[in-house]
Nucleic acid binder design. Sequence first.
DNA 1: CAAGCAGTTGAACACTTATTCAACTATTTG
DNA 2: CAAATAGTTGAATAAGTGTTCAACTGCTTG
Lengths: 124, 124
Amino acid sequence: MREENFDILNCNCKGSDKKLIAKLKKSIPKEEKIVDTSAFLSVFGDGTRLKILWILRKDEVCVCDIASVLKMTKSAISHQLRILKQFRLVSFRKDGQKVYYSLSDHHVADIIEKGFEHTEEIYE
Amino acid sequence: MREENFDILNCNCKGSDKKLIAKLKKSIPKEEKIVDTSAFLSVFGDGTRLKILWILRKDEVCVCDIASVLKMTKSAISHQLRILKQFRLVSFRKDGQKVYYSLSDHHVADIIEKGFEHTEEIYE
DNA sequence: CAAGCAGTTGAACACTTATTCAACTATTTG
DNA sequence: CAAATAGTTGAATAAGTGTTCAACTGCTTG
């Protein structure tokens, strides 16, 4: 929708707090930062990736062993590791044919912990 | 893939650490908890929802004003608020025609903060 | 009560995404 | 060197998702 038409096409509630709206508009982070951050956080929104991160939480593990633990193909794991690499959540070390992955971001443990805490509070 | 065929169809790397694999298999949270938690965390993986949560971080705001701040339709906002309600991230209070939303989960601020921290560390 | 406003909802659409499959590289081993 | 192993990659497919649109509920006000 074109921005100049927005006020015509959309709401402008009668009793709305113009000052609050102005304040909030200013407070929203820049679009680029929103895009990057939501992309980063979406990494945690998939069960397979969450399990991989859980596995790497305390150990350095090769692709094959991750696949073995999760009972999934190496291909599927490798695809997900590519995403984790892309967002700098994991790093890797090659040793012969094997590639060992490990966590490289200190926010990961915190975010996962908050996630599980929420689930436990809500569903138990 | 059927589990009984997994070892045949998939890897079981020669030099793999059987003890580590066994330990990791036991450590993985139950599937139900993984599903619930990844679903919860996926809420943060969308730009619009991230902005809504940001807005509600400190203020109680009606649907129309959220739409106004984000230059989006009330319908789009309402659909996203439904998801935020479903995962108990927000609660609401009706006052006449208006519905005021606010945060209802104490993990939200933490998770968002970690997300933005990560983005700032990586891209700046 | 009729009109307008705030908000919700379901269907439709375009877009994204996770896994599978097959082909590939690179390293190790017999 | 040939075969096997560890891992990666691109294309294809099936499933999931966000916004739009139109229709709807419910509240308020003239």
